[in-house]
Design a binder for these strands. Structure first.
Lengths: 354, 354
DNA sequence: TTGTAGGCGTTATCAA
DNA sequence: TTGATAACGCCTACAA
């Protein structure tokens, strides 16, 4: 591979001049003919500056790490990746994908100065702050996207929405339809700890509507769809049987629909199902899935846009993190409806059975 | 950030010794107590070697680029990413994700020596060979995964399967059920050029079974599910109406099922649907989707495993690329069945109408 | 067993 | 408008 020296020799100038031309810097201070000669030589030799050498002297890699969701490649993460990708590409940055469950690797990447920034896109979002001490260069940044539980600014720039609010929207919808026995399907029991605010909001909101509620788990270590099927079947066995199921994400919900179909239970005739996230597939399930739209794409775009802006802005390296808030909203499709009349009647005179 | 010099000073040794200890090289040639002193100093100072400096002197980045599918984050690519991720991580490599449609960027990454290898995971797989001239370092590699149309070894290591064979499995299945009017749903018409062998195999195989066939397209520039819906509705309008639909991938097939449900057409009662790839979701659609299993995960694993092996093997840099072949197989679920009797009868006396 | 010196390819500083 | 020189942080002959 040709180096800058080869080019300078071929063009009869110094490496400095070549560097100037290649970086389009001090362009006024370079004679047009010299410039042309350099470009010609570079082209002829197929010269490309070494990223490693540049990073060594410049301290920046123009690479950003993104921490993926653990184990399963969930739909919501696919959205984050796709949106991040688009924006980074528009600004000449590269995307390094770090497998979920390997947060330690993320720290290494920062400390080895292999990346300029890290984006935390998994739960709990608050833990992004743990990365703070992995920052070793003045321009390095940390950002996070997702729903946060507590304070709106956990020490780094966060694009967030409120899963508690989204949960309330779901429960409000079901309560308004007349449901009075709702099950929350959070996945494996270990997941509860990751979404404490969803559970709290669910219970609190159900209580406010005087709606009876329960939680149905899945076994750990299985794909989302399978977990959904399992939770659906378990919910059917509960007594009294819930009239509506609230799945923590649309992947689960899709499995739930499959499980109910398999059991011969009509949706929404016998049981209503509501999902969470509004994944692209939600509009194409059978029946189309009522769900809560989480502003994943919007939030990701805003976050990454801000991030690259901050990285490219040399004037201010200590900018305080500005967090942005986005809203969830209910998307009503066909998987929810009023509970069956028979159920409604029975419910009112079997209050004790719980 | 502490440098190797800081550590050497703190430990009272030379940078060379620190390097030796950190890289665990010549470990026998380092006194145990010196070693301990160095490690202690490194730990205390929070020392991490600079990736840029290492890359500059060593010529390797331990990073691999993966070219994603264009525009849409399709299911099959999610599988490729996930499997690649797992293997790379086990070998201390990092994954750089390049957006589809930006093949030029892939070349830049290689030429700037920002990555040690590039994995081509989009169609047409043959075009991976175009990257050959972007290789500038002796150890750099190119690999590809997917279905290839022509020769089994297009100049780089390829883990492949045969979409033509898979297509034949689909058509054979439908023909055996008694279908005699099958539509192929390849997506937008621009996609036909990317999968010429599937179309050819489809037509050829239908002819062999004396089955009438047609092709139904979708408009370009829309998400997969929407395209599936559109193709389904268009297929319903065709005269004579096909009794079975073969979708080029399961994302389309999912949309097709949604479109048919929306139109009130029973599957497989009135129309059979068969997909391609055996995406994880295929077992959870309504009805569960009959599809052709493409060995995406298996092939990806094998490819990446070989790739890192080759990269880490200093002894031989000119190893000839060894391509591996994997088999597709039919997965029968509930979306296919015999054509409706009425249709079957009409078909035999309306041969001319086409 | 340890240290010294040189170089990897680039950019930045300063001088011409 | 151009060029010499000195880093950037590490590794690797070679020498001690």
């Amino acid at each position: 591979m040709a180096t800058i020296r080869d080019v300078s020799a071929a063009a009869g100038v110094s490496p400095t001049t070549v560097s100037r031309v290649m970086n389009d810097l001090d362009s006024e201070h370079v004679a047009v003919e010299t410039r042309a000669r350099v470009l010609e030589a570079a082209e002829r030799l197929g010269y490309r500056p070494s990223a490693a050498a540049r990073a060594l002297v410049g301290g920046r890699t123009r690479t950003i790490a993104l921490l993926s969701s653990p184990v399963v490649y969930t739909t919501w993460f696919a959205i984050v990746v796709e949106e991040t990708q688009k924006i980074l590409d528009g600004h000449g940055y590269h995307l390094l994908l770090v497998p979920g469950g390997h947060e330690g690797e993320l720290r290494e990447l920062l400390r080895e100065r292999r990346v300029d920034a890290a984006i935390w896109a998994r739960y709990p979002v608050e833990r992004a702050t743990d990365l703070a001490d992995a920052i070793v260069a003045p321009h390095q940044r940390i950002a996070a996207v997702g729903s946060i539980h507590a304070s709106p600014s956990p020490g780094c720039c966060v694009a967030w929405w409120d899963d508690a609010a989204g949960t309330r929207q779901a429960v409000d919808h079901l309560a308004a339809l007349g449901h009075d026995r709702i099950a929350y399907l959070p996945g494996p029991s270990t997941a509860l700890a990751l979404w404490p605010n969803m559970l709290a909001a669910f219970e609190c909101s159900c209580d406010a509507h005087a709606v009876r509620h329960m939680v149905v788990h899945a076994d750990a270590e299985q794909p989302s769809f399978a977990a959904g099927v399992q939770m659906a079947l378990r919910a059917l066995e509960a007594t009294p049987r819930p009239t509506a199921l609230f799945a923590r994400n649309d992947d689960f919900a899709l499995g739930v629909l499959s499980g109910l179909a398999q059991a011969g239970v009509a949706v929404p005739g016998e049981i209503s199902v509501i999902g969470y996230n509004d994944a692209p597939v939600a509009a194409y399930t059978h029946p189309p899935l009522t769900t809560v739209h989480a502003p994943i794409a919007e939030a990701t775009r805003a976050l990454v846009e801000d991030l690259v802006q901050a990285l490219d802005d040399d004037t201010d390296d200590g900018t305080p993190p500005v967090s942005q808030h986005f809203l969830t909203r209910l998307v009503v499709r066909d998987s929810t409806g009023p509970p069956p009349v028979q159920q409604r009647r029975r419910s009112s005179c079997a209050e004790v059975s719980r």
